[in-house]
Structure formats: structure tokens, C-alpha cells
Design a protein around this nucleic acid. Structure first.
Lengths: 152, 152
DNA sequence: GGAATATTGCAACTGATTCTCAATACAGGG
DNA sequence: CCCTGTATTGAGAATCAGTTGCAATATTCC
């Protein structure tokens, strides 16, 4: 059993919940997805393995995965909540281009210390850090400059 | 005319849009609200001043205020998009307590440099920085440690 | 003041997420 | 292994935030 499966099983047991086949498959597929995904996308993946699983169950399982610390919510996009699995992955900064919709990631490590210091000051126990930056990627900046001769 | 009114008027003119009464009131009320708000809450405020304004118009105006750089989206909460006015206000980090729902704010300044450096590296033009941290505030940390006899 | 055009309120609509409920699967004890 | 009490499920209905079409209205600029 993989590490994340074990952690999920543990979490469920501790909560008095059951480790069912649908939940196993949803966890598995979530960890196969190596980009961000929304509920529907995860559902499509799971359906390929076990077609009888319903979208409702995916929606019901996602919060469990989050509480178990296996998945975290990511940059919401086009009206849909998005997620990413995080167990064992370092956190990162998300850069969303408002023009082309591209999402880039960089290391969050450099600011962790600063955040930890502030957390200490206000006595906050940080569990989840989400740093999203919206703007223009270099490609779209280039395009903008061409079409917009004057900026002042 | 206040500074933010002026900036909004300027933005609209530049876009060939009209400065209407509903838009003025929505802007005004948004700047009176000194916490985060969602569309419905802003609508309620506006309605007290001009009852004939519709919720749809609030929804239609919010994106304009964001594009004008007067309002920015904040921590989404209970399925609703939330906003805060920002014109002239320094950006800040949001700390959301998962237990009691309290939202605290701290200065974003200390990490700005780091972000600017990364932005430069990936050649990204940052317009909007959103740093949200979820966890437990000091009150709830205390509660969790002391009285947690029957949570199962 | 008048024309051209943007905007509005209203209600109907959309699409994501949640809920209801009867049927089913799981965990633990026998 | 089978039984029992409970948690869970699938399917579809329901909900709810946010959007849109449209005819009436307001604004801008001349």
C-alpha cells in the first residue's frame, strides 16, 4: 500500500468512516493526476477504472481527502473549484496569466520563513498556505506592448 | 469627489463606458465596507441607499471595479466570491481560522521583494497578489488542546 | 434637446455543487 | 464466514451563486 493510501485509511479509521472501493479509486486517480484538476476531471478519470462511480461521490470524497491532508484546493478557475494532491509535494506559488490562462508554479520555500515569523507573532497555527498571483505571463506582456503603444 | 470616485470615472471614460447612478452607489458602498464582502452583502448595503438597484447590476459592476484596480477578490468563503476594496490600502496576508472562521490580516510587505524577484525570473507581470493561510487562530488552538475530550 | 449607445431591472437561465432516499457495502462480533 | 448496525452509494432532484436576454431607461456628446 502506498503512503498516501495508508494515510487516508488511517484518517478514515480515526474518524469512524469506512474505506470503500469508490474512495480508494478516487484517491488513486487523484494521485495519478500530476496537474491541477477539478471534480469533473477527476470523475472522468475514475470512471475509466470503475464506470459505476458517481460524480456525487467524487464531490463527497474530495473534502475527506482535504481533511486528511492529501489534497488541497488550488486556484479556482472558470467557476470551478480546483484541487491538487500535495502529500509529499512541496508547496508552490501559482502564477495565473489573466490573458492566456496559463498557470505557472514556483517554489514557495523562500517566503516560508517570513510567514512562519508572522504566524508566531499572531500565534496562528498555519496548516495550508495558498499564494496566488494573477497578472500577465511574458508571452502576453509582449503581445500587450505591441497593441498598446502608450501606457501613461 | 473622492480619489477612488475619480479613478473609477477615469477608468470608465477610458473604456467608453458610462458613469451611472447605480455604479456610483455601488462604488461608494464598497468603500464604506471595511471588511471583506460578497456580492449579496454589497447589494444589501446599496439597497439601503437606492432600493431600486438590482443584484444583477452589483454583479455586473464588481468586475469593473476590479479592472479599475479599486477592488480585489479575496478569500472565497462558503461558496461565495468575496471582495475587498484596495485603492490606497496596502495589500495584506489573510489568515483564516478553520475553526471559528475569524479572518486576520498581516502585512504583505515583507515578502514582496521575494515575489518580485521570482516574477523577474519567470518574466511575469504581477498585478494581484493573494496570500491566504488557513489554520487555527490562537484561541482555537488553545481550545483544541484543552477541551477535546469528546470529538469522535 | 436629441440621437446614438451603454445600462438597467427583471426574470429566466446556467452550471457547479449538494442533498434526498432507498438500496448496498463495510467493519466487527459471533 | 455470516449477521447486524451503520456508513455509503448512485441517481436524479434541488439549490444556489452568478449570468444573460430583452425591452425600457439613462448617459454622453453634439
Amino acid at each position: 500500500m502506498q503512503d498516501h493510501e495508508h494515510k487516508f485509511a488511517e484518517y478514515l479509521a480515526q474518524k469512524g468512516l469506512k474505506l470503500t472501493a469508490p474512495r480508494k479509486y478516487i484517491l488513486l486517480e487523484a494521485f495519478k493526476l500530476h496537474e491541477h484538476f477539478n471534480a469533473e476531471e477527476l470523475y472522468e478519470k475514475v470512471k475509466r477504472v470503475t464506470p459505476e462511480v458517481s460524480l456525487a461521490t467524487v464531490y463527497r470524497t474530495l473534502p475527506l481527502l482535504m481533511e486528511a491532508g492529501l489534497v488541497q484546493s488550488a486556484l479556482r478557475s472558470s467557476g470551478r473549484d480546483r484541487y491538487e494532491h500535495i502529500y509529499g509535494h512541496p508547496k508552490h506559488i501559482h502564477w495565473l496569466c489573466r490573458s492566456c490562462g496559463a498557470i505557472m508554479e514556483t517554489d514557495l520555500q523562500p517566503i516560508n520563513e517570513t510567514i512562519a515569523a508572522q504566524a508566531k507573532t499572531i500565534r496562528f497555527e498555519a496548516q495550508d498556505i495558498e499564494l496566488n498571483i494573477k497578472g500577465l505571463c511574458w508571452k502576453c506582456t509582449a503581445n500587450d506592448n505591441e497593441n498598446q503603444p502608450d501606457e501613461s
